[in-house]
Nucleic acid binder design. Structure first.
Lengths: 215, 215
DNA sequence: GTCTATACTAGGATAGAC
DNA sequence: GTCTATCCTAGTATAGAC
């Protein structure tokens, strides 16, 4: 994951892996207890180490939190966002975006659940101005991602494939239904990806069929 | 709100109002910063008083949290749950339940948002056995509420009004889309209920039309 | 690069005045 | 019934050994 093509720069390579391991532990810890409910000791325990390791890679808990969000949005743009600019009719693109987003919620559950639970809250005032800037940036990227969906829906309406409706509101409903997966979905040990595909497929069918003109 | 018909029992009356005021302040505070992110001082500030007032009515922060959940589920059963047992065809009942639930999310935003953000998390271990029992009860009531929706969908499928699909999964999507309203909806000062009705109506149309057999 | 030890503060909860 | 004063634990962050 996130391994660079070049394996020559070993120092940087290992630095990235250590950092990625901390980030992964943080995502899982935040997923369980939320931002405020998670202590750095919890993150360290998830990691199988101590506080010292965490603080070696991240200056503060807030920085860790931001990086989880950042990674989650990267996954979204790469996984579903890219489809917005691919070929195909608007409703076909939308259908693929919805399916991809549904799968992302399950395959990257820790990151996505933390992201879904919101960036705005959790940080009551005790932030530096630099952190507030990062926060604004995270919100902006999330809004931008949502706008990709709205645009495709509007294209679908213009093309006559989707019946006329409030595109912004429908996308709120659509992404709400999908983001909600992170709240109830619990992966099984025996989970091979088959069950995830079934959930994504069923959910996509439901959410898209309500948009089509006629039936 | 929650005023009893009889005004003779003034002592109990006032005791309830004081308690209700604390609960209301807690719901608003939790809505902003989540459970762990909210201090008792924050609740007191919302209330326009001090800690002492809060602890006079509630023994602990966890008890306050549970009561917010309890009140939110009471609102749901009263507002949308009751419709499940009313007359009309399954899909008509479902439509009314969905509309009612959407409106509940907006009219009781503080309580509903706290409820939506989850009971399970936020309480990492530091709970008494009595509190754990209350927690299990809260989860059970939420599941029971969800099952009302599933039952009506299954009735609709049996009646041939709704096309055959995974009722449990569709309800997850449906309630997810509706619960998500608490995440993005921000009431305006000029909000007369007109705009809330429009949102509820538009969302209901979208979520129901994907279920109907044919178009 | 990872650990232990420690400083420092925020916040839950209680006691007791008014 | 509401306040102020205080106790005490939990948790962020840092220093410095290994």
């Amino acid at each position: 994951m996130a391994r660079r093509a070049s394996d020559t720069d070993d120092v940087l390579e290992e630095r990235n892996e250590g950092r990625a391991a901390v980030l992964d532990a943080a995502a899982r810890a935040f997923m369980h207890d939320g931002y405020a409910g998670t202590s750095i000791d919890d993150v360290a325990e998830q990691l199988g180490g101590t506080k010292g390791r965490v603080y070696h890679y991240y200056r503060s808990k807030a920085d860790l939190f931001f990086d989880v969000h950042s990674e989650s949005m990267r996954q979204n743009f790469e996984g579903a966002g890219a489809i917005a600019h691919e070929g195909g009719s608007p409703i076909d693109r939308l259908e693929r975006m919805v399916r991809a987003h549904a799968l992302l919620m399950m395959t990257h559950l820790p990151y996505q659940r933390v992201s879904v639970l919101g960036v705005e809250m959790h940080l009551a005032g005790n932030t530096t101005s630099k952190q507030r800037a990062t926060l604004r940036d995270a919100i902006a990227r999330r809004d931008e991602y949502e706008r990709l969906f709205v645009q495709v829906v509007e294209d679908g309406i213009a093309a006559g494939e989707i019946r006329p409706l409030d595109a912004a509101l429908v996308v709120k409903g659509l992404l709400g239904a999908l983001n909600w997966i992170t709240i109830w979905y619990r992966p099984r040990e025996t989970d091979t990806g088959e069950s995830r595909m079934r959930i994504a497929e069923e959910m996509t069918t439901y959410l898209i069929s309500g948009l089509r003109r006629r039936g």
